[in-house]
């Protein structure tokens, strides 16, 4: 198939960017979207034009490194990561617009690459259980009801790709933070720090200049891992609980 690509090109963090159009022929429907970009880059290199920078690593949908907005949708038309999107989801002759994640908290570094360090700092603020190595009791000391374990797991599948922020009309990171709050809050191990965790993490996401959540739901709709929207309500519940305890 033949396609036309409109790709955001930006030299560096402080440079102006613009959309550049490229034509690609002989694209196989079995290629992944990133493999299609590889083909573009090989072509550009041979034409002595700098290849398009984009983040990617595992290419199996789990590391969370890749992610671009394709025709206005984070990760494109399928509910999966960009690396697991295949060209068979497009038609011969399509024009495809490729843009980086857009948020002040995720500044563009080059072309389609953004800096998502803000997510790490949200985790630093409290997204953990303080369990120094060697202090653990036997793994069976604390049975966990399966429904709780399953709910914790559903939330824990977050890969930190940032699609939720990219898709949110407010550029809010609420789903990301809520996923971690829910994951740890559902488990007995997460209880001692539950009240302070949510407050610290929410404060950090505000400090990072993410927008506020207005429960629109685009985040969960584009999440490649299907993090449920109700984790945000869980976060709000925990937050109300913490405020009630005078934390915050």
């Amino acid at each position: 198939m033949n396609i036309t690509l409109r790709v955001w090109r930006q030299k560096g963090r402080d440079d102006e960017g613009r959309m550049v159009t490229y034509k690609l022929t002989d694209v196989s429907p079995d290629m992944s979207f990133l493999e299609m970009l590889d083909v573009l880059n090989e072509k550009l290199t041979l034409e002595s034009e700098e290849p398009v920078a984009f983040d990617h690593d595992c290419r199996e949908g789990i590391c969370g490194a890749c992610g671009v907005v394709i025709d206005g949708e984070a990760h494109g038309p399928e509910r999966t990561t960009t690396c697991q999107l295949h060209m068979r989801s497009f038609n011969d002759g399509d024009t495809i617009t490729v843009e980086p994640w857009r948020a002040s908290a995720f500044p563009v570094v080059k072309d389609l690459v953004v800096d998502r360090g803000a997510f790490d700092r949200i985790i630093q603020a409290g997204g953990y259980v303080s369990a120094p190595t060697g202090t653990a009791p036997d793994a069976h000391a604390n049975p966990i009801p399966k429904p709780d374990a399953d709910r914790a797991f559903d939330a824990a599948t977050c890969i930190g790709c940032g699609a939720c922020v990219a898709a949110c009309p407010n550029a809010s990171s609420m789903l990301f933070t809520a996923a971690k709050v829910t994951h740890l809050g559902m488990l007995p191990q997460g209880q001692p720090e539950r009240a302070s965790r949510v407050v610290q993490m929410v404060n950090q996401q505000d400090a990072e200049d993410f927008g506020g959540c207005t429960n629109i739901g685009e985040c969960a709709a584009v999440c490649p891992k299907g993090i449920p929207l109700d984790t945000i309500s869980q976060l709000n519940q925990d937050l109300l609980g913490s405020l009630g305890k005078g934390i915050g």
Partner: peptide
């Protein structure tokens, strides 16, 4: 033991 203490959500049975 260490991973469970950190909150790693291993698969569990109905008995927990």
């Amino acid at each position: 033991d260490q991973c469970v203490a950190q909150g790693v959500p291993f698969a569990r049975e109905y008995g927990g």
